[in-house]
Each structure stands twice: as structure tokens, then as C-alpha cells.
Design a binder for these strands. Structure first.
Lengths: 192, 192
DNA sequence: CGTCTATTTGAATGTACTCAAAAGCGGTGG
DNA sequence: CCACCGCTTTTGAGTACATTCAAATAGACG
């Protein structure tokens, strides 16, 4: 269960000692998933928050017409969850699925709550994580309202080149709030 | 500085005793503002989080073409702030303005941080407030991507009839992410 | 190789936008 | 009290960007 990737990530935003990390490791489990596997279905309560060690995941909702809307795209070294369901521990309407074969760390809700008391630095880490989530969502929402689909795609290329490079077009289009056809045309435009 | 409205609001989500409330009251100040006054300008650092006792406020950003985008509409009994700037205490890009003559309570950042240590129930209250802010933003974003402008307006009529009733059309249109002209036509459609 | 999924292209359509201008509403000062 | 001014709402006409529907092509995987 040694995960240098997670250890370094935690230390990017908080000071987590080796002893702290051993505590954390005890409650984390690792999962290998194949491509296109559902980790969390609509109506499930999110028991875990997921840390991507390798691969890529997406979270999405399904609207009344059956159209999927990608809420989040997560690659290596990032967390993903239905935060709404995770923090409230009630059933949510977000699904989480692997985009490719992936390796994931699972951090369970109740154990995390207990750990907060034992490892204060961890609470700071997650409080900041939630703050960043809010701020980045607000920024993304703002972009969606104020700039064209093409500029939003250019922004994504700049902000998250790794995501733009490895995630299939259909999911990126959905994440940007446009159709795959539109993004295909935008790409053609940009790259001649 | 007695504010029964705030006292009741705090007790809706946490158990705040009379003694707790006296502590809180000490750091709160009250402000009367005329219509169309700026409380927080672009580039300011948000020293306060505002509680609306009476009237209505809006927060908004201005994009590169000078178009305003309403981020939040707040009436009586609601908080409003540039949460991004408030929690980080760095300059933000959100402005806050009164829509009509209003009475506002100001809760300052540093005093709130200190109070957290003395009144644990207050920390719980604000943690939950931030969580609700995140969840409601996610929901709004989702609606913007998945349903038509007309359905979004109908949703607003259902969720926040008081806002729909008293806030001028231009701000509601901006909040919904459409032009005033479009909302005017949608309204005509709905109300014959 | 065949099937399933993803991407690209074309053509027609539509929803909301821009621009322009008129009408309505409200507050202020002469 | 009325006239004026600024801001808001409405209406009209033309437009643009992204959508839908349909179908062909390309890739991935067993």
C-alpha cells in the first residue's frame, strides 16, 4: 500500500509526517479497474473518495433525455468523488466510471472522519481541497457563460494538456458542455 | 445590534446559544446602503461576508467584453460574499452591489477565524454553509448545461419565487446566463 | 476479421444572440 | 406637480453558433 504519489500529493498542501501517513495508509485500499467500469452508480451513496494512481476516471450525470454530462475528469495524481453525496452521505445522482484501465486508492468516509481527529494536518488538506473544488467550479461555470466553446477548449488545452491529450473527445466535449460533433469541428479549425 | 433574523438563521443549521450569539454580535457591524451602491469592487479582497437583513444584493463578474455575469442573488435572510476571495484573503474578481436600499450585517474575516475557536457551533455552521454553496453551484451548473433557458427560469420561479418576484429582469437574465431580451420573450411565452 | 465505439463530415435547423428602437417606469429637481 | 432623465423592459428583424440527424470513416479489441 506504499503510495509515494499520494504521499507527495498530501505534502504539496499540508505537512504530513511519515507517522501520519502510516495512519492514513491503514484505511486506504487499492483497486485495479478495467476500462469502462462503474465505480459509483446513480443513486448510490459515495462511501469513498477516489485517488487516481494511474489511468483516468470521469464523473457524470444523466439528464431526463438520457444525455450524459461530464462533471469531472480525473487523471493520475487527482481525486474524484461525488462530493455532494460523499460529504452528506446520502444517495447522489452522479456516476463515476473508468475511462481506461486504472489503479485507484479508496479512502472511506467514516475512517476519514475519525482520522481528522487524529491527524489535524489531514483536515486542513481536505478543507483546502473542498475550497479549491468550489473555486475551480465557479471559474469553470463563469467560462461557460462568458466565452465561446472554442475558447473554452483552448483554455482546457492550456490548463490541463494531459487531460486534453489522453481523454477521448466525447468526454471532453461533454465536459465543455458541447456535442462531440462541435468539438470535432473546433479541433479541425484549430489544428488546420 | 440585536438581530433576531440572524439568530434564527444560525439556529436553523447549528445550535447557537444566547451566550454564543452575544460573542458573535460583538464583531458584527450593521450597514445601511442605498440602491446601486458597490460594497465590494473588482480586485478588492473580501474582508467581510455579508448577511442581508433587508433588501437585495447581487455579486457579479465582468468579462473581457464588459458584459456582467451575475454569480449570486441574495435577498433577506441570506449570505453573500466573494467566497473565493473571502476564504483565501487574496484579491478577487467578483463585485458586490446593492439592487435596492438594503440593511446588511458585516462579519469580518479575522474575527470570524478567532470566533471559530471560541464557538465550535459556528464553525460547523460555516462548514455546512460552504458545502451547500458548492452543492448548489454544481446543481446550477448542471441545469445550465442540461435544460433550456425557459426551464431554468421555471425552476427559479419554483425554487426562489421571492427572488423572481423582486429582482429586476436584467439581473435574473444574467444569473440564468441569457440576455434580458431573451428572458423578456420567455416571460411573455409563459404568462401569455 | 467482425463488432463496437469513437471520430469526422455534411446538410438542414433552431435557439438564443446582436443591433436597433420604442415604450414603460421611477426618481429628482425645477 | 409636472417634465425630464436614466434605467428597465419589450418588440422586431436579421444573424450566428452550435445542434440535430444521418451517414461514412477510423480505431480498438476480442
Amino acid at each position: 500500500m506504499r503510495s509515494p504519489l499520494l504521499f507527495d500529493n498530501l505534502n504539496k498542501y499540508a505537512k504530513i509526517t511519515e507517522a501520519d501517513f502510516e495512519q492514513i495508509e491503514k484505511v486506504i485500499s487499492k483497486k485495479f479497474v478495467k476500462k469502462r467500469r462503474t465505480l459509483l452508480g446513480e443513486g448510490d451513496t459515495s462511501r469513498y473518495i477516489y485517488f487516481v494512481e494511474k489511468g483516468a476516471l470521469r464523473s457524470f450525470t444523466v439528464d431526463k433525455d438520457g444525455i450524459e454530462h461530464v462533471v469531472q475528469l480525473a487523471i493520475e495524481d487527482h481525486w474524484i468523488a461525488d462530493l455532494c453525496s460523499f460529504v452528506t452521505q446520502v444517495p447522489g445522482n452522479i456516476s463515476i466510471e473508468s475511462i481506461e484501465d486504472s489503479e485507484i486508492l479508496l479512502l472511506p468516509y467514516h475512517e476519514l472522519e475519525l482520522l481528522y481527529g487524529q491527524v489535524p494536518a489531514l483536515e486542513r488538506y481536505f478543507r483546502q481541497l473542498f475550497q479549491r473544488a468550489y473555486v475551480s467550479l465557479q471559474r469553470r461555470f463563469n467560462l461557460t457563460l462568458s466565452v465561446s466553446a472554442e475558447d473554452r477548449y483552448r483554455q482546457l488545452l492550456k490548463d490541463s494538456p494531459q487531460i486534453a491529450a489522453k481523454v477521448p473527445l466525447i468526454y471532453i466535449a461533454s465536459f465543455l458542455g458541447i456535442t462531440p460533433e462541435s468539438l470535432s469541428r473546433i479541433r479541425k479549425q484549430i489544428f488546420h
